[in-house]
Amino acid sequence: MQPILTIDNLRAGIEGREILKGVSLTVRPGEVHAIMGPNGSGKSTLASVLAGREDYEVLGGSVTFMQKDLLEMAPEERAGEGLFLAFQYPVEIPGVSTANFLKTSVNAVRKYRGQEPLEAAAFLALMREKMKLVEMDQSFLSRSLNEGFSGGEKKRNEVFQMAMLEPTLSVLDETDSGLDIDALRIVASGVNALRSPSNATVVITHYQRLLDYIVPDVVHVLVNGRIAMSGGKELALELEAKGYDWVKNTVPVEA
């Protein structure tokens, strides 16, 4: 089976500072990968580069997504091709209702894929169905996007959008940060419900806690812009027990 995502020796940075110093990673259909690492290791940079944030500069390497060169694509093309980034800090957009935003988003992606826009009734039915996944209340739909949402509500809204867009690859950037255990459980069960043999998930997190609920097939530890260690789900537990210093000390760090 062809991989969904192949990252090969990716180097990237911001404002002349190199943050990713050669990351390689292959994600196949049906897999869940966790990327763990201490603060400043490059986790969020990796998420931003994958989604196409323009302030990051790619310095070398390649990223292949569904046999296409991901780095050549604009952010909206990446979304159209089936890549989804759940933001660490979802943006508040006053004046745009959540429902209106979702409709615009879903139909933009459908247009990219050469599909007809969804009719109002079909769209409404789809929203109702997907909201249940993250136990979101109907009242969210008429509120301005993320405005005044609590931390947990924002993250649930991200997973709700993910459910609406049915991506091939979801990248969850610190989706667990700032969540209490109940919100974490809701978010995780939403993500799990969306797993299928044909899609894949990359979970970026600082803490092992989330991985109790979203169980990864592979765990990578990112240190100083490189994947220092990869292993099964038990690696996350070992990291939790021994701390990131254990990895830093195990792996030789370039001067």
Binding site: A51, P75, E76, A79, F101, S105, V106
Partner: peptide, 15 residues
């Protein structure tokens, strides 16, 4: 707001 612009593009909206 550039962050808002990127957020919308990441959800599939052309710039």
């Amino acid at each position: 707001n550039e962050d808002a612009l990127f957020y919308l593009r990441a959800r599939g909206l052309p710039e």
